[in-house]
């Protein structure tokens, strides 16, 4: 149970990122150092208990207390403080080959890649090129959230009205887990995302694809249902008249692995249930359920959404 967090895709000891390695190095040094100090203190307690009761020379005792009780703690804590601050300075430094803006919403992630050709908006999934430093500009729309991909690096609060920064430099390919690390309300524990590390060429191809508008025929019956039900008031599908800014961008919904901010597999069954029993799948969220959507009409809408690749 204690070690439950020490494996898998949320493993902060996976050394999958440059910044996670920096934190991990500090962790091992603090752990070993704490062990040494513990052993010394316990050793002294045993010595004090067993030793023959006789006074020490005052000069030696004074020196021991001054060095061991004042100088050593100040130096050790000061050194660790400086080390920790240097790591913090590096992982928040304002530079990166790639800039990604992430906005925390209750309870999902709005993700915008800044590219020379303009912003590329997606949601609930972050893809990163291997070995390149990505700078995240983090904001929040409603309450305080916290952005954390344990395997890749440190966590950073997302504070309404402010922008915080965090760099991640992935060193291992893989699909790593990300989550909100600051309690933010009802569905906080269901506010997750995938952080997928790709080869740089694959990433460039993916980003180019993501920048494209959706390939939707205007007479697509699924899109007609999407429009009739008013989905476009909240959700955007680039390249169509649906430009709602409230909920996640659905332009390339089906190319994502997960549905509902990292919690369900992207399958037609899950999408159908998401539409009709939204509140049961993710309690407290703003999206209303559409229990009246059934049969062929629902199937057509789900097929349309699954075609958004």
């Amino acid at each position: 149970m204690v070690l439950a967090g020490c494996g898998g895709r949320h493993n902060w000891l996976a050394a999958a990122g440059e910044e996670a390695r920096a934190v991990e190095t500090l962790f091992w040094i603090v752990l070993v150092g704490a062990g040494v100090i513990w052993a010394l203190v316990v050793g002294l307690a045993v010595y004090a208990h067993r030793a023959e009761a006789k006074p020490h020379r005052e000069r030696e005792a004074r020196r021991f207390i001054l060095w061991g009780g004042v100088a050593l703690p100040v130096l050790v804590v000061g050194g660790l403080l400086i080390w920790g601050l240097l790591i913090l300075r590096d992982i928040t430094a304002d530079d990166g080959a790639l800039t990604v803006r992430v906005d925390g919403e209750r309870w999902w992630w709005r993700v915008i890649y800044d590219t020379p050709e303009g912003p590329v908006t997606t949601a609930n999934e972050i893809r990163l090129p291997l070995g390149e430093r990505a700078l995240f500009r983090l904001t929040a729309d409603d309450v305080i959230h916290s952005f954390w991909v344990p395997a890749l690096g440190g966590k950073m609060d997302m504070i309404p009205g402010r922008e915080t920064t965090l760099a991640l430099t992935p060193r291992r390919l893989g699909n790593w887990g990300g989550l909100c690390a600051e309690f933010c309300g009802g569905a906080h524990a269901l506010m997750r995302f995938d952080a997928i590390v790709m080869e740089p060429d694959d990433f460039a191809a993916w980003l180019a694809q993501e920048a494209q508008p959706a390939r939707v025929a205007m007479d697509d019956p699924g899109f007609a249902i999407f429009a009739e039900e008013g989905c476009g008031a909240c959700h955007a599908i680039r390249g169509t008249e649906a430009q709602g800014p409230v909920g996640p961008d659905l332009t390339h919904l089906a190319s994502r692995d997960k549905l509902g901010a990292g919690i369900y597999d992207m399958t037609p069954e899950n999408i159908a249930r998401w539409i009709t029993e939204t509140d049961a799948m993710k309690p407290d969220i703003d999206m209303p359920s559409y229990p009246g959507l059934r049969g062929a009409r629902l199937d057509t809408l789900v097929s349309f959404l699954m075609s958004l690749e």
Binding site: V70, V74, V77, G78, L81, I82, L85, L86, L88, R89, D94
Partner: peptide, 20 residues
């Protein structure tokens, strides 16, 4: 006095390390 001096030192350190 010793405690307060150390605390002041620990207040100054972040200001010196973090440049912006």
């Amino acid at each position: 006095c010793v405690l307060s001096a150390a605390a002041i030192l620990f207040t100054v350190i972040p200001g010196m390390v973090l440049g912006q």
